[in-house]
Design a protein around this nucleic acid. Structure first.
Length: 155
DNA sequence: GCCAACGTTGGC
DNA sequence: GCCAACGTTGGC
């Protein structure tokens, strides 16, 4: 099992939306690096649900992978903002199904993560806090996961 | 709303 | 293959 982080703007889709639906398709990823990470995901992998571009930027909870990746139907949907006319011949984008696991009592903020990274070397290579990183899907090492989870549990 | 940083496109 | 122009991401 591996760990991941995926970003979503809560105005579009939030941890509360996922909790209500219980399961959802994670689609609309239009970056090759992020797509390739989706293709590496396996059933049972756990994912931090990250809220971006909002008031409380940070990790809002946990979800898990409940299927293997498949072609993103939005890429072929002309009415979708994620429509990609260049994918018509062979859909090059991928989606994956995820399920709600838990929501934290409060979002573990990006500022908290950055502060933790100053003192905990396990976060030195964390893609999220690397300058200029805009990846919406990224791997998390087991050490990084445990380091941040320990902080969250001890609040 | 601003803007730094990044990814993609396309002319050459 | 280079790189300028453009579009997007996402924190602030």
């Amino acid at each position: 099992m591996t760990y991941w982080l995926m970003k979503s703007e809560p105005d579009e889709f939030s941890i509360d939306d996922l909790r209500l639906k219980k399961e959802a398709r994670w689609d609309g990823v239009r970056n090759y690096q992020a797509r390739n990470f989706i293709r590496q995901m396996a059933i049972g992998d756990r994912i931090w649900f990250y809220h971006s571009s909002c008031k409380k930027v940070g990790i809002a909870g946990i979800m898990k992978v409940v299927g293997t990746h498949y072609p993103d139907p939005l890429a072929l949907d002309e009415t979708s903002p994620y429509y990609d006319e260049k994918s018509l011949e062979n859909n090059k984008w991928s989606a994956i199904d995820v399920a709600f696991e838990r929501k934290f009592e409060s979002t573990y903020l990006l500022s908290d993560i950055k502060r933790l990274a100053e003192t905990d070397q396990r976060l030195t290579d964390f893609a999220l806090t690397k300058k200029g990183s805009r990846l919406s899907v990224m791997p998390v090492s087991e050490a990084q996961w445990e380091c941040v989870m320990a902080e969250i549990e001890s609040r």
